[in-house]
Design a protein around this nucleic acid. Structure first.
Lengths: 220, 220
DNA sequence: CTGTTTCGATACGACTCTGTATTCGATACA
DNA sequence: TGTATCGAATACAGAGTCGTATCGAAACAG
């Protein structure tokens, strides 16, 4: 019931190389365009022009704009999760470095401010769309759920190894971290003069570390 | 240079009663519609139909959809600020109660879940729009700036009276609080099963209180 | 009660977007 | 080399939207 994505494909054929390349260009153009004007603000026309195709190409690959959006959801989600998994593997970092890594997942920092901006706008669009549309909501929820579970495990291990305890469940902690990381980036985009995006998130980490106590005191 | 809003009005006339009522209905309809479909997804037609007018009425009052959006920016901003000012006056509350009040500002909780949802979607739209459009960005920045300054003062007084210190500037603290409050609401909308919107924000407050130390240790 | 002003409704032309049906060129394969 | 297939371009019909220019009714002033 929730596996509706990509109806366009007949399961028999394995998707030719050319076709896949076309789609990739369409997706890239869509990411740009959506970041600039939002889902609703972007016409199929816009999007195809950017990609250097005509609408014929689009409708040959996707049944509707909505279907492309769902495709993007899954791919972006998978990309984020993959990057966090990498971090999980390389774990055992000091707090600041860990934060930097996590923020990089969110903001793709190495690619420069412009890309970070676009990525954040795209996330914002995703979020709004997920709140409005049940199908998108389910897809996004699945992605976020995995992400949060991984983050929670990461944090839990981290605290356990260091013998620290905080007065918050690791799930809530993961949620808070995501909220703060994304929120910090957004704040920075709204008001670039007020310090880097990291600095606000670092304040949160500072707070977190000061709230952490040795695990010894297990008694409630 | 930044006082462009409301060009439609000739400064001479004082805006008749009838006209003001019409605008109010248009604004109310716009809030609904924007929350449901976003700025770009809402046609002037949609909006007028909802308000029970034809497009003629709209163009007689606003030069463009964009102008209406800016009008909403200012009004919503003013409303938020006013409510926070009230809280500031009634201050001297315990942390949980203070948080509840602040969340009420954000989420208008008394008006029920549906309205909270709409309000949050609208805020999301505002934020994205502010990141994209310089003029909207300036307007939103002004509103947010006042809000943040008030919150910071509130928090600062609060901590000072209690003789507490946290390792973060009060400005950053205010930013964090806003980010967390808004983020918590958003999280709740994305995943209503995972506890109330307040519970996540409360976790943050718990963290914050545990991180707070008596001011005595000023040396450092 | 009458003349004037105000303000929303109506009518209109231009434009844009959508989705489909068809065409045509390129590529793969025998 | 000839032919079948695939995939993007083109052409087209229909719907929706925009902004304006004009009209008519209600509100208001004298």
């Amino acid at each position: 019931m929730t596996m509706a994505t990509e109806q366009t494909e007949r399961p028999g054929r394995p998707v030719s190389k050319r076709r896949e390349a076309t789609r990739e260009r369409l997706r890239a153009a869509a990411i740009e365009a959506f970041a600039e004007r939002g889902f609703h603000g972007t016409s199929v026309e816009d999007l195809c022009e950017r990609a250097g195709f005509t609408r014929g190409a689009f409708y040959s690959n996707y049944a509707s704009r909505e279907e492309l959006v769902l495709d993007l959801y899954e791919r972006q989600g998978a990309a984020i999760n993959a990057r966090l998994a990498e971090i999980g593997a390389t774990a055992d970092l000091e707090p600041r470095e860990l934060l930097r890594q996590v923020m990089a997942v969110w903001g793709e920092e190495e690619a420069g401010a412009e890309r970070r901006r676009a990525f954040n706008l795209l996330l914002g669009e995703f979020t709004l769309h997920a709140i409005r549309d049940p199908e998108a909501g389910a897809a996004w929820h699945a992605v976020q759920g995995r992400l949060r579970a991984d983050t929670a495990r990461l944090l839990q291990d981290y605290l356990r190894v260091r013998g620290l305890t905080v007065p918050v469940s690791s799930d809530d902690l993961a949620r808070l971290l995501h909220v703060v990381v994304q929120g910090s980036t957004t704040q920075h985009l709204l008001d670039p003069q007020a310090g880097s995006a990291e600095s606000l998130a670092e304040s949160f980490v500072a707070l977190l570390l000061q709230a952490a106590r040795p695990t010894s005191a297990v008694g409630a």
